[in-house]
Amino acid sequence: MLDKPAANTQPVGTGAQSAPVLPVDIRVTGLSKTFGDVQIFKDISFGLSRGEAVAIVGANGTGKSTLLRCLMGLIPADGGTVDVLGTEVTSANAQALRAMRGQIGLVSQKHNLVPRLSVLSNVVQGLLGKHSGIRHWSQALAPAASRDAAMEALQRVGLAHLADRRADRLSGGQSQRVAIARALVGKPKILIADEPTASLDPSAGEDVMDLFFGLAKDEGVTVVFISHNITHALQYGDRILGLSGGKMPLDSRADKLSETDLRGLYD
């Protein structure tokens, strides 16, 4: 059910004709979403190949986070289809959705760590998609292998020494790095970050972006990151998708774009 080779081997449409044929991790076709009477976006299509780093840009409130939630099946779409790692998200049952989400690591703007729990417990909980049940509710109950995996993930973000600190006692940059460790611990095929630096000061933001993309390149994972920071998008993205007025008027390789091209999206 998870493997649909037909959908997995087609090359990506726009902007990738010259690239070698890579498996397609995400394919969105004719996606539309409304909240009540408000049309957020309409008839959006794009595809992402394995290993690509894609920046989705657009002004505040254009529906970037909403698009991401539709990709992960966290909210239902109104029309169109979403295929992620061979799972047809818009029609999948709860079990298939969980299996798909278990292969994705998500880092969000507000970090969304569970306050009052330790850093290590938060990272162990990143394995809940693979191992449901009480043993992954807290580091105290977790099997040795899971604790080790969580400690290793913390080491990679440079925070192993804070493993037993309470999550709400961290600085902004530290807590975002814990969120990255939680996203990485399950060895995801796709990493998604929704404005990962928006709540950080500029220098902590640079650190987090460098760390995030360094790890992503090491793992060879597909990266989707949402940003309204044009400079970040051009610097870290291989490809840029622009959302504006409920459409996706921009889909281009980053090296063919300048900051002026992107500014147009914000008018």
Partner: peptide, 21 residues
């Protein structure tokens, strides 16, 4: 709702999300 959404996005079951977040 943020932490609950973050755990749902890892593929956790509803009961796990409620207990953990």
């Amino acid at each position: 709702k943020g932490p609950a959404e973050a755990l749902t996005a890892t593929g956790a079951r509803k009961l796990d999300v409620v207990a953990c977040a």
